[in-house]
Simulated scan of single mutants.
Amino acid sequence: MSDREAGTPVPYMERTRHYYRALGYESDYVWAHHSDAPFAHLAKPLRASTVALITTAGPPDLSNRDARNRKHVWSGEVQNPPATFDTDVAWDREATHTDDRETFLPIDAMKRLVADGTIGALSPRFHGAPTDYSHRKTKEEDAPEILRRLREDKVDAALLTAL
């Protein structure tokens, strides 16, 4: 573990700025923001809602796909999640690891929330959102595809977790 204190947040955005500057970039990375995203209040209480999980971790076995097709929306079964995920994405390897699936796909925690009545149900599928540097692709292709899948699963809310 790095020199930061245990339990303190990882200053990810600041570290990313420093990293890009060290690579010689003169301007900071521009983080995607979508002020027109259609977020909405829940139509019913959380305890009566079906919740889906969305992760930025990549799908498991990528051995039969070429690099150009790695970044796509994908789905998996909550009852049978893969043991490993594609972790060939940028993440802070000094501050964290990918050995604990619950940190980026908290299926077991969500099942406990269903069991104690905090949420009504967990969607039978979770979904993977590719981490892509194209704001246009995220907004025009990936987000609509995830929304289509969420509607197909009849979910009321979604929780996005990042790898």
Rank of each mutant, 00 (worst) to 15 (best):
A6E: 06
K139S: 12
L159D: 06
T87M: 15
T87S: 15
V155G: 00
R93W: 09
L42E: 02
T50E: 03
H127W: 02
K111M: 14
K44N: 09
R151A: 11
G24Q: 04
E145V: 03
L113M: 13
F104K: 02
K154R: 01
L62A: 13
P124S: 02
W74V: 00
N69W: 07
G24W: 02
V89F: 14
V73S: 09
F126G: 06
R148Q: 01
L159F: 10
S49Q: 00
L122T: 12
L122P: 15
P38D: 00
E5D: 14
I146N: 04
D153W: 03
R112T: 14
G76D: 10
A90V: 13
L42Y: 00
D108H: 10
P38C: 01
P82M: 10
M1H: 15
D99Q: 07
E26M: 07
R112M: 15
K139L: 15
P144V: 06
A67F: 11
Y20L: 06
D108T: 15
V89Q: 13
H72S: 07
D86E: 08
I54R: 10
V30T: 07
E94G: 09
L163A: 11
H41T: 04
V73F: 06
P45Y: 00
F104N: 02
S2T: 12
V78H: 08
L160I: 04
F126N: 05
S35C: 11
D99M: 07
A115F: 12
Y12C: 13
N69A: 09
S63E: 15
W31A: 04
G76P: 06
V30N: 05
E140L: 04
A83H: 13
L62C: 13
Q79V: 14
R149K: 05
D36T: 03
R15H: 06
E145W: 01
R112Q: 15
G128E: 00
R149G: 04
E140V: 05
A158N: 14
T8K: 08
P11C: 01
S2Q: 07
L62W: 11
A143F: 05
V155S: 01
V30S: 01
G128Q: 01
M1I: 10
S2W: 10
S134P: 12
L42K: 02
A52T: 05
R17V: 00
A162F: 08
R17K: 04
S2K: 08
A67Q: 04
W31G: 04
D36K: 08
T56H: 09
F39N: 10
D88K: 12
L42C: 03
A40F: 00
N64A: 07
A52L: 02
A129M: 12
N69Y: 08
F39H: 08
H135K: 13
G128M: 03
S2I: 09
L147K: 15
N80M: 13
K44T: 06
S2Y: 09
R151E: 07
T8E: 11
R136H: 14
A37V: 10
S123F: 00
A129R: 05
R47N: 12
P106S: 14
D99W: 01
F104M: 02
T56I: 12
D132K: 03
A109M: 14
N80R: 13
T16W: 01
F85V: 06
